[in-house]
Design a protein around this nucleic acid. Structure first.
Lengths: 154, 154
DNA sequence: TATAGAATGACAGTATGTTGTCAATATGAA
DNA sequence: TTCATATTGACAACATACTGTCATTCTATA
C-alpha cells in the first residue's frame, strides 16, 4: 500500500480529525447515559431542550440543531405520544404547529439537565477552564474554515 | 425554565462538547464527500482502510474502529458483493475469515486517500500545524478523562 | 483430556438521521 | 391581485450503527 504524499500539517490535520470524531462518539455516548435515567436519549433531549428554549416549529428546531426536519419530526411525534410535548397552533403559520413542552416534559428535561450540569462541572474542573476555552476557540476557527466555500468536493 | 447551577469550568466544558460534536458532524460529512466520487461513504472507506492496513477478521476491524462487529459485517458483505474485498481463509480461525482488498478495492481506496491527502494538506496549511497538534493533545487528554472509571452514569 | 467460557458470524429488531417526493400553505414580486 | 417560488408536514426508502440472541468454533483451565 502506497501512502499518498502529505505535508506535516496535512498529517496533523488527519490526526486531529480522527481525535475529534472519536471524542464526539464518546461525548454522544455520555449524553445518552445522562438522558437514560430519565428514559430518554441524546436526540430526544436535544429536541426537548430546543422546545424548552423557545416555542418553535419542527422545521425550525431542525435548523437550530443542524438536522433534517424529517428526523426531528419523527422524534417530536414520539415525544408527543409520550406526553412530553404538545403541538400548539401557530398564529403565524397554519401548518407549522409550535412544539411546546408539557409539565411532564419540562420535569424530565430538568432532571436531565441537573445530571448533565453535575457531570460537566466535574469534568470541567478535572480538565481546566483555560484549556477548554482555548481549545473551543480553535475548534470554532476550524469549523469556520470547514464551512468556507473550499468544500472537500471542490 | 430554571438553569441548573453550573460552575464556569462546567459551562466551558458544555460549550466545548457542543463544539466537538458539531465539528465531528462536519468532518464526517467531509469524509463522505471525499469518498463519494469513488462511489463510497465514510463508513465503507474506514473498512477498506482497515483491511488495507492489515488482513483482519470482521470482528478485529470492529475493535480497531471502535464499532460493533455486526455493523462492520454488514458493510464488509456489501463491499464483497461489489468486488472490493474478498474473504480469505484464516489459518488461525475457521469461522473468522480474513478480509482482504481486491485490486479494485485497493484502487478505489487509493483514489479516496489521494483526494483526502490533498484536502487535509490544504486545511492543515490553513489552520496551522502548531494549533492542530496542541489541540489534538488536549483532545487526547479529555478522551482519557472520559474513559476513566468516573463514567457519566456514575 | 474435558469442559466451561469467550469469540465469532448470522439474524432480527431498534434508533438515529439522510434524501426524495407530494400536496398544502406562505411569501414575495410583477 | 396573481402567480411563481419557498416552506412545511407527511410518507417512503435507505444508510449507519446499536443491542440481543443463537449456534458454532476456539481457548484455556482444571
Amino acid at each position: 500500500m502506497k501512502k499518498p504524499d502529505r505535508t506535516d500539517a496535512g498529517d496533523a490535520f488527519a490526526l486531529f480529525s480522527i481525535s475529534v470524531i472519536r471524542l464526539a462518539q464518546h461525548l454522544t455516548a455520555a449524553g445518552d447515559a445522562l438522558a437514560k435515567p430519565a428514559g430518554q436519549s441524546s436526540a430526544r433531549w436535544q429536541v426537548l431542550a430546543a422546545a424548552s428554549h423557545a416555542s418553535m416549529s419542527v422545521a425550525e428546531i431542525g435548523r437550530v440543531l443542524g438536522l433534517a426536519r424529517q428526523g426531528v419530526q419523527r422524534i417530536a411525534d414520539i415525544l408527543e405520544t409520550e406526553g412530553l410535548v404538545r403541538y400548539e397552533d401557530n398564529p403565524a403559520h397554519q401548518r407549522a404547529k409550535l412544539l411546546v413542552l408539557t409539565p411532564e416534559g419540562q420535569a424530565i428535561l430538568n432532571d436531565i439537565q441537573t445530571r448533565q450540569a453535575e457531570w460537566a462541572d466535574a469534568l470541567g474542573a478535572e480538565i481546566g477552564e483555560t484549556d477548554l476555552r482555548t481549545t473551543t476557540a480553535i475548534l470554532a476557527r476550524i469549523l469556520d474554515e470547514l464551512s468556507k466555500p473550499k468544500s472537500p468536493a471542490r
